[in-house]
């Protein structure tokens, strides 16, 4: 067992982000300045986190978070 730390380090869209231990996906969106009502999809370690669970899903050290949106494409 590793000793509990007060911060965790995660990857958000490929970039490092330090968060307080116990932070959730919603905290990441807040840090990004993103409104949860916007059309986004969130993935943690390649698994979808449904919008309804963004407030509950707690992140762990080393988690890879993707915040995805629609852009133009063919």
């Amino acid at each position: 067992m590793s000793t509990e730390t007060s911060t965790i380090q995660v990857q958000v869209n490929g970039e490092g982000m330090a968060l307080a231990a116990g932070a959730t996906c919603a905290d990441v969106l807040e840090r990004l300045g993103v409104d949860q009502q916007q059309r986004l999809a969130v993935e943690v370690n390649e698994a979808i986190v449904p919008r309804s669970q963004l407030n509950e899903h707690r992140l762990a050290d080393g988690d890879r978070v993707e915040v995805i949106q629609a852009i133009g494409g063919g």
Partner: peptide, 18 residues
């Protein structure tokens, strides 16, 4: 059709959404 990419909303909060 649309494509899906990493959000850049954090960089440009006023960017219009497709």
């Amino acid at each position: 059709t649309i494509a899906l990419r990493r959000s850049n909303i954090g960089q440009d909060p006023d960017a219009p959404n497709l």
